[in-house]
Design a protein around this nucleic acid. Structure first.
Ligand SMILES: [Mn+2]
Ligand SMILES: [Mn+2]
Ligand SMILES: [Zn+2]
Ligand SMILES: [Zn+2]
Lengths: 141, 141
DNA sequence: AGCCAAATGCAACTAAGCTGCAAGTAGTTT
DNA sequence: AAACTACTTGCAGCTTAGTTGCATTTGGCT
């Protein structure tokens, strides 16, 4: 996507969920759309450099996006939260994330579809699932 | 398991992985064996009360157990680490954990087996997977 | 242009965990 | 049994990642 396309998509997404199109929201959402992998608040701030909003605003903005379901938290077995645009996820699951045990890199496996697990337990109703994969990436295999 | 059985199992596990059988290790591992669900360092300390080791020791002990593969970190959508004995996990995955979106409780689904995902991506070699389920528990459904 | 609820920035605070180092102890050796 | 010592523990202080309260600013509306 070009810079111009990202800007258009950012505004369209903010409009769609009826959030004010403020400076901080535009740049934070654009940073997520540009990234190939889930990003932490810290990573976003670093990438934005001098145009980064106050860090409290970054945290609050990301939380706002999650509540509006424009962005999801990706749980990567790390101590910090990572965020990504929600558009490559279905109602019942986000795409799996693969982390290489050798180089530590994480990759979105958006083409992969894993059927929703059926619980053999009486009474448990499963609505969503998250899958995390570990192994060796193409570079390290 | 009775208290006596827990004590025996604790010592047997520590011996098996060649870790010294110290007071802190015995009580922390016993607390995990007694629990039905993954526990945080804080939860363990609270349950142990006055016999809890120093909190730094609890952290270090849990990390030691993970390195020795006696204990695993559970894949939960929380900001703190949760730990559980590794004996109900296979080489390729831990059993899934189910979290109820209504009451917030987490349950170990040890009877559930999910086939290891096959990556459609060239070059990615999957060694392990972790699955987290969300929905309604029997009490809340 | 003026209004105002919503958004932002700043300072202070907190939860969860980590580091350095001195003191203690489990398991071994004599 | 006593001595040895590498591993383990406890304490003080530090760090990371995020939160809260509150005063100031601004986007969207009239
Ligand atoms: Mn992703
Ligand atoms: Mn479990
Ligand atoms: Zn790799
Ligand atoms: Zn419930």
């Amino acid at each position: 996507m070009t810079t111009r396309e990202i800007e258009k998509r950012t505004d369209a997404l903010l409009n769609a969920v009826k959030l004010k199109r403020t400076g901080p929201r535009r740049v934070v959402l654009a940073a997520l759309l540009r990234a190939a992998e889930p990003q932490s608040a810290e990573q976003i701030a670093v990438k934005l450099g001098t145009s980064a909003p106050n860090k409290v605003t970054v945290y609050r903005t990301l939380e706002t996006f999650v509540n509006a379901d424009v962005v999801h938290k990706a749980f990567l077995q790390k101590r910090t939260w990572y965020y990504e645009p929600a558009d490559k996820c279905t109602d019942t699951q986000c795409h799996p994330h693969f982390t290489c045990t050798h180089c530590g890199d994480t990759h979105c496996l958006t083409e992969m579809s894993i059927p929703l697990a059926e619980s053999p337990y009486k009474g448990f109703v499963v609505h969503r699932q998250q899958v995390r994969l570990e192994g060796l990436c193409p570079d390290c295999a």
